[in-house]
């Protein structure tokens, strides 16, 4: 301790002081909420219908099981989204005149699928395409619901990737092409890795959004977490299952959000 310079000692003191103040004010807010909220006239009723421990205990295991569906839908959608988004981003980036239709297609694709609310697309594709008369299992709501999610999200991610591609300085392309690399190799080895790396934080935001939006598939049949909570709500006339579902979603999305923030902060510190 005696080895600390005066400046270090001062900084340490300041750090301790701010930590103390932060902790104290946090505790004060929590204490105020804890004592004041139960005094609200409707608190007993709210507690009974939203924070009912007995209901939660009874429904939580099934809710968790239903959440496995959300995880599964998420897990198989994500790689598909990434692959399709990459393809679309590359379409939008082609320079060859012969491939101009691809560019147009890419632009249309992103305009349309970013412009339609996800829930509408889930409905239209989830009921519409199977309605053409596909045999089982090709008319499964899981399949076409996934298609809807993949179409929407790949449009967003494609735009993120495209702006990533455009953000790679043209001198990088020049360096690569001056070495005799083909355009495709330049894209694959030089531009894309940098573009993707740069856009990871932005993509994380979409990944988090997807984690929640998988629940939209419940509208076309699958009994995943949101629907299961909805069923319990109707059955028990109690909103606690919804709170349970929210907690389950948060358990996944909060760490993911923090991780995205961490990546973003890390990237900023590298750039500056």
């Amino acid at each position: 301790m005696s080895a600390l310079s005066p400046r270090k000692r001062y900084e340490q003191k300041e750090r301790r002081r701010s930590l103390l103040i932060a902790t104290a004010s946090l505790l004060a807010v929590c204490a105020a909420l804890y004592t004041l909220v139960p005094k609200a006239p409707g608190w007993v009723a709210v507690k009974r219908s939203f924070f009912n421990w007995a209901v939660l205990e009874k429904t939580f295991p099934t809710l968790l099981k239903a959440f496995l569906w959300d995880i599964a839908i998420f897990a198989w959608s994500l790689p598909l989204i990434m692959v399709l988004a990459l393809a679309i981003a590359l379409c939008r980036n082609v320079k060859t005149p012969a491939l101009f239709p691809l560019r147009v297609f890419g632009a249309f694709y992103t305009d349309i699928f970013r412009g339609v609310p996800t829930i509408l697309l889930v409905y239209l594709i989830g009921f519409g395409i199977p309605g053409l008369g596909l045999p089982r299992p090709w008319n499964s709501p899981y399949l076409w619901g996934t298609v809807a999610l993949v179409l929407t999200y790949s449009a967003y991610v494609a735009e993120v990737l495209r702006s990533g591609i455009e953000s790679v300085h043209k001198s990088q392309r020049a360096a690569s092409e001056s070495l005799g690399l083909t355009e495709a190799d330049t894209m694959r080895f030089v531009v894309l890795p940098q573009a993707i790396r740069r856009q990871v934080p932005a993509m994380m935001n979409f990944i988090i959004a997807l984690q929640k939006d998988v629940a939209l598939l419940s509208f076309i049949g699958p009994v995943e977490l949101l629907r299961q909570a909805n069923v319990y709500k109707s059955l028990m006339a109690n909103f606690t299952p919804y709170v349970g579902a929210a907690v389950i979603f948060l358990c996944v999305t909060i760490p993911a959000t923090r991780y995205a923030d961490y990546l973003l902060a890390k990237q900023h510190s590298v750039r500056t």
């Binding site: 009921f127 519409g128 199977p130 309605g131 008369g133 089982r136 509208f219 076309i220 009994v223």
Partner: peptide, 30 residues
């Protein structure tokens, strides 16, 4: 609840928001 408690079908039931959606699902042969 009737399906779950009384009939207990062999395959998992799919659930929807309202009757119109259930009808859409049966029309799509889902």
């Amino acid at each position: 609840p009737f399906l779950e408690n009384v009939l207990q079908p062999e395959q998992a039931t799919l659930l929807y928001d309202d009757n119109a959606d259930v009808v859409a699902a049966i029309s799509a042969n889902q």
